[in-house]
């Protein structure tokens, strides 16, 4: 007889059964990814053509409905301006939190505020900008820059948090070495700390961009949307999410096809940004 007391059948079966259930969880979680991306490719690719990318939507229900040029350029413009606002501000605040404020009351207040902002639904940011700048006491009207501002508020907590994390990973010994050489703190931050954290900062910024590029809700009340291409930030502007949102609600299969094509374009842009961000992060992890 064996010296080992055999594990009971019930325990072995339970082990296998639960393990399979957990695996089923993985499959169930990945299924929507495959389905959504699969459908977007299948339905969006047929919409792709030179005209699709090179003409603006005409607004016509029948006949020539046009492509999504103004939407693509609008997305780049709105998200680009938002990044220009949020990324430097966010990194500056991350520097403040990690290098200067540290455990001061103001810094803890900011951290708490960032925690709050992180959980705020994006539509609430839109409402805020809407109530202050679109129907506000001192300023009215829809404009692209107001949408950028809403997106910037959405990006800010992401950039600050990612920035704080990557700055915290810069070894203290490095700072101390530079300070011991008599360098003032601002030089240490600018020439030692920030360059060492650069890949983390890039990753955080790209993820922030990827997250906000697909946002629709904050743009609805701020940018409004438009058909024609415009380069003016003080007017309503088109964007991919808005174009998709409007086309979905049209009872016309051609417009819906345009929505699928625009969705594929948007997803490709976001996926590429996300993957670049991930690989930037991976290269950093030595």
């Amino acid at each position: 007889m064996s010296v080992f007391i055999a594990t009971s059948r019930r325990r072995l079966v339970t082990n296998v059964l639960i393990k399979s259930l957990l695996l089923a969880g993985v499959i169930a979680a990945l299924l929507p990814l495959v389905l959504v991306i699969g459908y977007v490719f299948a339905k969006g690719l047929p919409a792709f053509s030179a005209d699709f990318f090179l003409t603006d939507p005409t607004g016509a229900f029948f006949g020539d409905q046009g492509g999504i040029r103004s939407a693509i350029i609008g997305t780049f413009a709105i998200v680009g301006l938002a990044s220009l606002i949020a990324i430097p501000t966010g990194i500056a605040l991350a520097v403040y939190l990690n290098e200067i404020g540290k455990k001061s009351k103001l810094a803890s207040g900011i951290r708490y505020g960032v925690d709050i902002l992180t959980g705020v639904p994006s539509i609430v940011f839109g409402l805020f900008i809407y109530s202050v700048l679109v129907i506000g006491d001192f300023m009215t009207g829809f404009a692209a820059w107001k949408g950028s501002l809403a997106l910037a508020l959405l990006m800010l907590p992401v950039v600050i948090r990612a920035g704080e994390v990557s700055l915290a990973m810069v070894p203290t010994t490095l700072r101390e070495a530079a300070l011991a050489l008599g360098a003032p703190r601002w030089r240490v931050i600018l020439f030692v700390v920030l360059p060492s954290a650069v890949s983390g900062l890039v990753t955080g910024s790209l993820l922030a961009i990827a997250r906000t590029a697909g946002e629709t809700a904050p743009l609805l009340f701020t940018v409004l949307g438009a058909q024609a291409l415009t380069m003016s930030f003080v007017e309503p502007m088109n964007s991919l999410p808005l174009q998709i949102f409007n086309d979905i609600r049209q009872p016309n299969p051609d417009l819906v096809t345009r929505a699928w094509g625009a969705a594929l374009t948007l997803i490709l842009l976001i996926l590429v940004t996300t993957l670049i961000a991930r690989f930037a992060a991976r290269r950093n992890r030595i």
Binding site: L30, V36, K43, F245, W260
Partner: peptide, 18 residues
Amino acid sequence: LDLLAAIPSVVYGLWGVF
């Protein structure tokens, strides 16, 4: 799994509707 979070809300809506 993280990529699932990268798909915009409006695209989920599009897929949901059609």
